[in-house]
Design a protein around this nucleic acid. Structure first.
Lengths: 224, 224
DNA sequence: GGCAATCTTGACGGCTTCCTGACAGCGCGC
DNA sequence: GCGCGCTGTCAGGAAGCCGTCAAGATTGCC
């Protein structure tokens, strides 16, 4: 099943795309603005993004840049602007395709197929493994030495964010804003508690973690 | 150097594309029809194909199919037909993109860049390398002779600033204001301490640095 | 209401990071 | 040689950060 993140600020278009894409077998994750779109991309497995450039809260180009900062997921831009300058900007920012409104649903579907066909070969597996534990992103399950490990919602959110950025340093701020919300960006104590719990559940030697690493003053890192 | 196979039956368009693409740094392999196009793709290393659907000898869709039989090279279709049916057919046949005539050269170039970015340089990460160490900007990680080197937040900030300006002289003031804040622009002592630490961690001979150079009285320079 | 699971909050010890001061070395002009 | 300005080196202590444990809140469920 292919999951499409659809970003559009007009509710009726969002709804229409949602219905039509769903009817063609896609799982749709709707987002009415850039902020929720970026948040959704971090926490869910997205196969392709359909992005309307005209958003209320931030520039569409910044959404592209935000996504391209850490993921190669195909991005198809929708826009009412026909100017070549706009197309060039979006494509150079990292978009894969640019479709001008009005567009036929057939065409969008074909471009979706083209985009997923390309990335499909290099399939990002929804499963991350280490020597000690396995994280099944799709099913939200964690195994350690073959045995299922129970996670609380918060534990899972933190773990998922780290595992979705393997090898990448994730700042405390980023974890806190993604998991608890922007108002909690300073509550670093939460993180210490939950990192300790995750390590106790997943690491062989919680005091000397092999995969859930802390970089003092910088953030945390998941080492596969 | 990126090589583009341009397939078009109209000599003047073919010639125009050839000149313009060449002017933008591409190597162009021209082909006036489908047969020579397929032959050329077999005998030369092609990075991306620009294909006009209206060919004299065979259907453009068959050219796409012929290429897709053995290669994943990106194909950008040019066509005078605006109908969504044509687009769907071409895309589903294996094309990566579909541009309708008339089109701006800027747009075609942007789509070329998008296509080659996807396929060709998937290893092109924001990484800066020297003979002795590698700085991974995206993951905020530094390797020296293959081994990860831990950086403190301040060390990383200084290093990142220098590495993001390779070969360029960065004044002490600039580093101090960027890393510590404008109020610290005079605290050059901080810099000496941290440059020493960076060199101790990264240089083979910290006393005779090869990459983190001092320009007396001016600032510092990163030499790749 | 009672219970269990989960999330917050507090306290404390240990460790990392940062700042700071003292001193040595180098290049330059006189 | 000598002073001067700039730079590199080292080490210690203060401040802040991190891990740990355990005791309240809060929530959802029976």
């Amino acid at each position: 099943m292919t999951t499409v993140l659809v970003v559009d600020d007009e509710p009726q278009i969002l709804r229409a795309l949602q219905i039509n894409l769903h009817a063609h077998g896609y799982t749709v994750v709707p987002a009415p603005n850039g902020t929720t779109a970026l948040a959704a991309a971090q926490t869910q497995a997205i196969d392709v993004v359909v992005l309307d450039l005209g958003l209320p809260d931030m520039d569409g180009l910044d959404v592209i840049a935000g996504l391209r900062g850490w993921t190669e997921v195909p991005i198809i831009v929708l826009s009412a602007r026909h100017g070549s300058h706009d197309k060039v900007e979006a494509l150079d920012a990292g978009a894969d395709d640019y479709v001008t409104k009005p567009f036929g649903l057939d065409e969008l579907l074909a471009r979706l197929r083209a985009a997923t066909r390309r990335s499909g070969t290099q399939t990002a597996e929804p499963r991350v493994e280490t020597a000690e534990f396995t994280v099944d992103l799709a099913n939200k399950q964690v195994f350690r030495h073959g045995e299922a490990v129970r996670m609380t919602p918060t534990e899972w959110s933190v773990l998922e964010l780290l595992v979705r950025n393997p090898g990448r340093l994730v700042s405390q701020q980023q974890i806190l804003t993604e998991v608890w919300g922007p108002a909690y960006a300073k509550e670093t104590h939460y993180l210490r508690v939950y990192m300790a719990q995750l390590r106790r559940k997943l690491e062989n030697d919680p005091a000397n973690p092999a995969h859930l690493l802390t970089e003092a003053g910088m953030g945390y890192r998941f080492a596969p």
